[in-house]
Computed example of a mutant assay.
Amino acid sequence: MTQYNVRLDAFEGPLDLLLHLINRYEIDIYDIPVAKITEQYLEYIHTMQELQLDIASEYLVMAATLIAIKSKTLLPKYEEDEFDQQLEMEMDEDPRDELVRRLIEYRKFKEASSYLREHESKRSLTFSKPPSNLDHFEAKQEPVNPVSNMTIYDLVGAFQSLFDKKKTKNAPKTKIDRQEIPIDKRMSEIVTELRFRKGVQTFQNLFPYPSKDHMVVTFLAVLELMKTRQIRCEQDENFNEISIHLMEEDIS
């Protein structure tokens, strides 16, 4: 299969992924279950590798950090008289403290950036000039967020679950050789299918074949269509079905 490498701006870094997992599973940030969060984090990394996405080195560094913290939490605690006072203080320190501090600091900056972005958007609509007749200008619609009420990690998680379900099903023994599908061709097929469905299709129904190659190409095609703002994804609530919508200007 041809190698496809895609880098998306929506992946903001390992701390963003950790914060997403904490929010998704409603985990107390001050009492992180390291074993569970490490397992979920590594699953996302594995899924990114399955999709042949470029994984920045900081994701792998964070994976190593989580494994190291997990190892420290599993170490047995010794009696107090076996170490001097300084070593006892080090043993009493929670190995998660530094990670929690970084996450809290990152969350503060993330919330602040969201607040500033919102106010910058509102401020951009304010003009310090006398009123003018602008009827002759064509109203331009603001760009639609391709990912509504969800993050790119939700989409990767949905693909991960779908991929696991497809693998567990017994595939037919008959092998049919077919030509590999280029991403641009699969993108056109998805757009055509959305137009046929009046602009809406469920994420799961975009993957009719259990073939790994076809699933990966389809998922990468979805990401590229989002990146070029030809489609957008919506999810009403956590764990609900994700729906794919064709942008209005693309609906014939």
Rank of each mutant, 00 (worst) to 15 (best):
Met226Leu: 10
Arg178Phe: 07
Lys140Phe: 05
Met226Trp: 00
Tyr153Leu: 03
Ser188Gln: 14
Asp184His: 11
Ser211His: 12
Lys212Asp: 12
Thr126Tyr: 11
Ser124Arg: 05
Val217Ser: 06
Gln141Tyr: 11
His119Arg: 13
Leu134Phe: 08
Ser188Ala: 13
Leu225Trp: 04
Asn170Glu: 09
Asp177Ala: 11
Ser113Lys: 15
His136Asp: 14
Leu116Ser: 08
Asp164Asn: 03
Tyr115His: 13
His136Thr: 11
Gln160Met: 11
Asp135Arg: 08
Val147Asn: 05
Thr228Asn: 10
Thr126Val: 15
Leu206Ser: 03
Thr174His: 08
Val200Gly: 02
Lys227Trp: 09
Glu118Phe: 11
Pro172Ile: 03
Glu138Ala: 14
Lys166His: 08
Asn170Lys: 09
Ile190Lys: 02
Ala221Asp: 04
Glu193Leu: 09
Val156Trp: 00
Ala139Thr: 09
Glu189Trp: 04
Asp154His: 09
Gly157His: 01
Thr218Trp: 10
Glu120Ala: 09
Val216Arg: 05
Val217Thr: 14
Val191Met: 03
His136Ser: 15
Ser113Asn: 15
Glu142Met: 05
Leu194Lys: 03
Leu125Asn: 11
Ser121Gly: 10
Ser161Tyr: 06
Glu193Val: 04
Val191Tyr: 00
Pro131Gly: 08
Pro182Asp: 09
Leu194Glu: 02
Phe127Trp: 07
His119Thr: 13
Ala158Met: 08
Pro182Tyr: 12
Lys198Pro: 01
Phe127Gln: 06
Val222Met: 13
Lys167Met: 05
Asn205Ile: 09
Lys198Thr: 06
Phe127Met: 06
Glu189Gln: 14
Lys165Trp: 03
Arg117Val: 02
His136Lys: 15
Arg197Met: 06
Phe163Ala: 04
Arg186Phe: 02
Leu220Cys: 12
Phe159Trp: 07
